[in-house]
Amino acid sequence: MSDAMTANPVQTRKTASPVARLVGSWLPPAVTFVIVAVLWQVVALNNPYVLPTLESVGNSMASDPHMYWANMLVTCQEIVIGAGAGILFGFLLAVAMSELPIIEKAVMPLIVVIMVTPVVAIAPALVVAFGFGMLPKYIVTGLVVFFPMLVNSLAGLRDVDQKALDVFKTLHASRWETFRDLRLPGCMPFVFAGLRIAMPLAVVGAAVAEFVAAGQQAGLGSLVTISAAQANLPVTWASIALLCLLGVVLVSLLALLRKRVLWWSDADVIGR
């Protein structure tokens, strides 16, 4: 794809037609998916207790879309609120740490202790502390994304161009001016690297939160555990597929946002 953008008149090869290019980029993955689907069907038809057939998964979704939709919304809510708070808090704490090193000294050891504690082990304790509502699930989802956001944002805020910083210092730029015009925009590549890790983790976090902090049994993760316990494989795999879809959508949205915010960091994109 980037070949098209950087194409240079001097060394242009015979450019492929748009249809050919589309086929070229879509065909290989499509073939992979078809092969996997065929293998899946072969296993499913011969071992009905291992995998459901693809039709049965599809039928399950088609027969009760509202049920899936409602559960997906619950999981989305956990991601938006829980991961959203974790991301925001991770970023803000990174800003505080980079502006006031004393905060990093004071807080970082505690954060490392929390982060090496398995979230799966904290969750039941959170349920005891905060009850069976949504709060423990938000906390678990938020905890999972918090650390990669904190670490990446902090690295970005520290990675400021020293020569540009010197220019700011000789101009006697205030702390706020230096943050607004230099550190904040400059740390965005790292923030997006953090988000790229955090987004898939947010889905994992929400699913795990529903497994371990059961409470009200709702969400795609709960659906997986309940249906698996009943050996209702079509529902289990339909829920897994939807969790996967959620992850893909989140990562795609992130890629779109990155293109808008971070156009300047990819040399290819600038040449618009």
Binding site: K163, A164, V167, F168, E177
Partner: peptide, 24 residues
């Protein structure tokens, strides 16, 4: 004027050059 240009990549050349007026 540092050894490397140290321009801000997210600002146009005009905005980069206007920066010292805007700051402080």
């Amino acid at each position: 004027v540092p050894q490397s240009p140290a321009l801000l990549p997210w600002r146009t050349i005009l905005d980069n050059v206007s920066l010292p007026i805007k700051i402080n």
